[in-house]
Nucleic acid binder design. Structure first.
Length: 709
RNA sequence: GGGGGAUUAGCUCAUCUGGCUAGAGCGCUUGCAUGGCAUGCAAGAGGUGGUCGGUUCGACUCCGAUAUCCUCCA
């Protein structure tokens, strides 16, 4: 049986109160996609047999030396890889990068899923997915040219992701081995529990965990057989889950490795942990949205923020949104000067004035075609005319950063080349962030050059040329910079600062002329993933503050080196001197200790059966040196010794007590027994302690002498 | 947005109930062996244990904050 389509009839919308409301436009989803269609046309029984997937499948099969059709397991692996590489490559070419949030996380997950199949069933232990990109690019170059155009970039990104995943696999394996050795993961947070304890619903208490760890240690010491028995040859679900959750180590791999060691995985326990994790996420992300209350309908929302900073308007609809203990309200106005977050530019803040009642707007976001104002409370008269006004100081800071971002991109293309593609951008009131495709770290000279070009353009005071409702074809002809994968409408807005310099499609708000930006300063240049660099920069007031802070810092350092012509040189010299002095000091101390040990050794006297030395006031400068002296002394005397070395350091008597292990005495207990007022402890033969009262030490020495006589 | 981790030598990592001169491999320096190299043997240098606080007689180790990175859930 072959399923070619699967019809779904869309009829209702489910409201928050679970009632059903008929949709304005009912439709049918046939589920007959590209792959099913191809399969049908080419007369195959599976879409994987069609020529969409076969080339990739054959390539991977050959590389892994496993024939397609050899076994169900390897076939699945091959199909997963063929399917996923397509999704991954296309999405990356579309401008979405793997990351740990949102859409980027989805890419990372499918990539890892396919790598895992390759690793477990086809024996790949090094990146292989990235090798498939070129043939894919060739295969689809006529229908999806973006992939071919950015082939090298996509290969790089995938390769880096693969490498990093193989790395997490390795750390996961280490942790798992740690479990086999010690009964806990590296983090040491989860010790071993008895079957009974592990099967309980409630999480183990810290005390239970500690107890469990103790049991493992004892079992290990006493008898290795006990140890495995103790585990019931079972990896607790909690451990398996922690591997998965913390180290990204997939369950089926845990299962495989465990089987090799003769262990089973407690899968039920794993499920329980997984459910708990999901619950936590749900609770945290739970937003309860009420349905919209509509006051006025049918009108289109009008954004007037390009030309105005305030407006008289009316509320069209509103609703409440609950998240955790916070409740917010969302308002939609018929026209508004508030810019909704998009294209990297952050949303506006400001206030809405309902006939004297001022309500703060905390943020503005877009949902479909609606511009949504976030407020803490609803106005008393929500039907009343409203005066909307944005925070203009903040808005001015934002638009400086936005326009500067355009100048920056143009400058980067001049300095680095036209391969510089925007990969992400953030513009808020404090700074701007621009991610772009580039293969290497920028040199300080390149950064300086970029900064200089942007500042030159600012000083030129180039006037903004803004064209709205330009047909997309025409914009293309004008040579405007567009983003791969970005969806543009038929009519676009073109922002130009000097036609020879910067022309971009953009929906954001900009300065009237570049002079308003004031000053542009790059704060950092870093890498965010393979082949993608990030520049962070500031403008206007923030740039001045930044420069001021730097200058003040330099001045302050200069003050410390009064008269020095070259401060950097002075600091260097100082550091070198410091290092030298430290070394010298260490050597001196070692010599001092050596001399001291010689002297102490001469004073060791026979008391009863032991070689005894008790000194309360050794002339030494640090507790560390005292400890070293003690260690060296024991190395010299070797056996049958009891030493008490003490010295007054910083008003405290530091006591160092050493008892030869061959005497079979516990120094720790000895100290507690004889001089409880001296606080400290340690292993039986190596006790460190201190007391505020020097007499305690004399007393201890006396008592010890008595004891061994 | 919410969990869980990591941060120790140039690199990869140890240090399992807080005390034991903080270790190993690779790399580096020097010496020896070989005609030379790969290599082998030996000696040595290299650490504010991310940063800032707290608990303790004592913290790389425990607790809290902060930064960066990894990972899972949404």
């Amino acid at each position: 049986m072959i399923e070619i389509w699967n019809n779904v009839f869309m009829e209702f919308e489910r409201k928050a109160d679970s009632s059903l409301v008929p949709l304005p436009k009912k439709h049918v989803d046939t589920g007959m996609g590209f792959e099913r269609l191809t399969m049908a046309i080419q007369g195959k029984y599976s879409s994987y047999d069609s020529d969409i997937f076969q080339p990739v499948i054959q390539y991977v099969a050959q590389k892994s030396n496993i024939k397609y059709g050899a076994s169900e397991k390897t076939d699945i692996a091959l199909r997963v890889i063929a399917d996923h590489i397509r999704a991954i490559s296309f999405t990356i070419a579309d401008g979405q990068l793997p990351s740990n949030t949102g859409a980027g996380y989805v890419i990372r997950r499918i990539l890892r899923r396919s790598v895992r199949y390759g690793y477990s069933y086809l024996g790949f232990e090094a990146p292989f997915m990235c090798e498939l990109v070129p043939m894919l690019a060739e295969q689809f170059k006529n229908v999806f040219p973006e992939l071919n155009a950015q082939k090298d970039f996509v290969v790089n990104v995938i390769r880096e992701e693969e490498i990093s995943f193989f790395k997490t696999l390795k750390t996961g394996l280490n942790s798992l081995n740690n479990f086999f050795d010690h009964g806990s993961l590296q983090s040491n947070k989860i010790g071993y529990l008895t079957e009974e304890e592990a099967s309980q619903d409630s999480a183990p208490t810290p005390k239970e965990i500690e107890e469990g760890q103790k049991r493992v240690v004892t079992a290990l010491k006493e008898n290795a057989d006990n140890y495995t028995q103790f585990y019931k040859r079972n990896i607790p679900g909690k451990i398996a889950f922690q591997l998965y959750d913390t180290y990204g180590f997939p369950l089926d791999l845990t299962r495989l490795v465990a089987a090799e060691m003769g262990f089973m995985v407690d899968e039920k326990g794993f499920e329980v942990e997984m459910a708990a994790q999901k619950d936590r996420g749900r609770v945290a992300a739970a937003t309860e949205q009420s349905d919209w209350t509509t006051i006025e309908d049918g009108k289109k929302v009008e954004f007037i923020g390009y030309d105005f900073t305030e407006a008289d308007a009316r509320v069209m609809k509103y609703r409440s949104v609950k998240q955790k203990d916070k409740e917010l309200f969302q308002l939609v106005l018929d026209k508004t000067p508030f810019y909704a977050e998009s294209g990297g530019q952050i949303g506006d803040t400001g206030y809405l004035d309902f006939g004297g009642e001022k309500i703060d707007v905390l943020d503005t976001k877009k949902e479909n075609d609606l511009i949504i104002h976030f407020v803490k409370k609803l106005p008393a008269k929500v039907n009343a005319p409203v005066h909307a006004k944005i925070n203009t100081i903040r808005r001015n800071d934002i638009i400086k950063n936005h326009s500067a971002t355009h100048l920056l991109q143009a400058a980067l293309r001049i300095v680095l080349g036209t391969h510089v593609q925007q990969k992400g951008s953030l513009v808020n009131a404090d700074y701007l962030r621009f991610d772009f495709a580039h293969f290497a770290k920028m040199t300080p000279e390149e950064i300086a050059k970029v900064e200089q070009i942007v500042n030159d353009k600012i000083m030129e005071n180039v006037v903004l040329d803004e064209k709205r409702n330009v047909p997309i074809k025409e914009a293309e002809k004008m040579g405007a910079t567009m983003l791969f994968g970005e969806k543009y409408g038929e009519l676009v807005r073109v922002i130009t600062f000097d036609p020879q310099f910067s022309r971009e499609l953009c929906g954001g708000v900009h300065v009237k002329s570049t002079g308003a930006i004031g000053l542009f300063k790059i704060i950092s240049e870093s890498s965010i993933s393979a082949g993608v660099r990030r520049i962070e920069a500031v403008t206007g007031r923030k740039a001045l503050e930044y420069v001021d802070a730097k200058v003040n810092e330099l001045t302050a350092i200069g003050e410390l080196f009064k008269g020095s012509k070259n401060v950097v040189q002075s600091v260097n010299t100082l550091m070198e001197q410091n290092e030298k002095l430290q070394k010298e000091n260490e050597h001196m101390q070692d010599k001092l200790v050596a001399g001291l040990v010689k002297q102490l050794k001469a004073e060791v006297a026979q008391v009863g059966k032991v070689q005894f030395l008790g000194k309360a006031n050794i002339d030494i400068t640090s507790a560390d040196a005292l400890r070293k002296a003690g260690i060296q002394l024991t190395n010299e005397v070797k056996d049958n010794f009891v030493f008490v070395l003490a010295s007054n350091i910083n008003g405290k008597s530091i006591v160092h007590l050493r008892v030869a292990p061959s005497l079979g005495l516990n120094g720790n207990q000895l100290l507690k027994e004889l001089s409880p007022s001296i606080k400290g402890g340690g292993p039986a033969d190596f006790v460190q302690a201190s007391t505020a009262n020097a007499n305690d030490v004399e007393e201890l020495i006396g008592k010890l002498k008595e004891r061994f006589k």
